[in-house]
Design a protein around this nucleic acid. Structure first.
Lengths: 208, 208
DNA sequence: GCATAATACGAGCTATGGCTCGCATTGGAT
DNA sequence: ATCCAATGCGAGCCATAGCTCGTATTATGC
């Protein structure tokens, strides 16, 4: 089970269309199994089976089970980063309060994209080294948010924008994450409104 | 490996002093291995070896490996809850801002008690059902904090104290957690001060 | 059509780790 | 001193899961 040193990068690039399909099927199957059956059940044999592919083929493209999980994580993070980049661009010209409110709303939506996968990924995956990718994710988010703060610098009280970005992003992430994953009662139509109000207030009052 | 249904409660109570020592040694060994070698290396054989005990004895008190890990978690959570209860009691009579500041400081300290164990426990443990205990932990913390808010009700803007407690506790927890585990640069003498200032401001401004 | 590379297959090897079970030792009560 | 319950022991069973490798099939260039 535990192997000497775990590779997480793909073994070989898929060049033909056929093999790209195989790779996609494998990543998709991994995600589905993680969601439906949990990490423990995600054996390489099972993944290959669900993907409609043989274990041999699996190991042609992924050097280890971890590599497969890492691929799922990368795909998921990439989706989330798209959303983050999108909203921060969209919001660049808005007044600060409106901007923050929009960001918070989107954060809630984003967590709803595939909450079960998100949950498995954050809660159930024994951290492989590559999971530092999640760290990379929040770093980039903080950097982007920081440029938003720079744009509004003169309206703000805070001086250390780095620190302020850390505080805001970490808080909003935690609030939306916990609400979606552990507090369904905060997500009924009206409760969600209230939550967004509160998170917005939290951040805006902090900043100015 | 995967057993049908995993028990997490002890198999039998240790009554004599000898066996209580065995149990303690096992829990201690588990914690040490988790910290020093990670979850994967924490096999029952290894745990027994490090504890200076046989596997047989291990299974006399813990029906599964998960039960052992759960015991470590319980012990750790209990320590943290002691701290939480302590600070909230201590702070009950203080003006709100001073109270919050003290709470935040203690949160940082608490994360420093055994950060490596805390990290393994939060990041590396495939979630056993019993890990809902962590949920229980934050529920209790929120409940306690809520009574603090009640005490200061008339100074506060917020109306839904339940929600407000969720917002405050979740944010402070996330900030201290992320700072201690992922942002060592925020923890030099002065940086830590700044962080505490910011977190305090975040919460206080939000509340009133 | 043919040669060669790319891709796919899956039975099975190997290692590992959770856990059992029959026996040994210890300790307290009488 | 003796007996019995509590505790301790650890070799080894067994299931599982990661992964390999020799072979079969499909695609591509000529």
């Amino acid at each position: 089970m535990a192997r000497a040193r775990v590779l997480t990068s793909p073994r070989k690039r898929a060049s033909q269309a056929r093999s790209r399909a195989t790779v996609d099927a494998l990543i998709g199957a991994t995600a589905r199994i993680l969601v439906r059956e949990g990490y423990d059940k995600a054996s390489t044999n099972r993944i290959a089976e669900v993907a409609g592919v043989s274990v041999g083929s699996l190991y042609q493209y992924f050097p280890s089970k971890e590599a497969l999980v890492a691929a799922v994580i990368d795909r998921h993070n990439e989706q989330l980063m798209q959303i983050v980049r999108g909203v921060l661009a969209e919001v660049a010209e808005l007044p600060i309060e409106a901007a923050i409110r929009r960001i918070v709303s989107v954060a809630v939506e984003a967590h709803r994209v595939d909450p079960k996968l998100h949950r498995v990924l954050t809660e159930q995956i024994p951290r492989l080294g590559k999971l530092e990718n999640i760290g990379a994710f929040s770093r980039e988010t903080q950097a982007l948010f920081r440029t938003l703060l720079e744009r509004h610098r003169n309206e703000l009280r805070v001086t250390d924008l780095e620190l302020a970005a850390f505080v805001c992003v970490t808080s909003v992430e935690a609030l939306t994450h916990h609400a979606v994953l552990h507090r369904p009662e905060f997500l009924s139509k009206e409760a969600a409104e209230a939550l967004i109000d509160e998170a917005t207030r939290l951040v805006v009052r902090y900043l100015r």
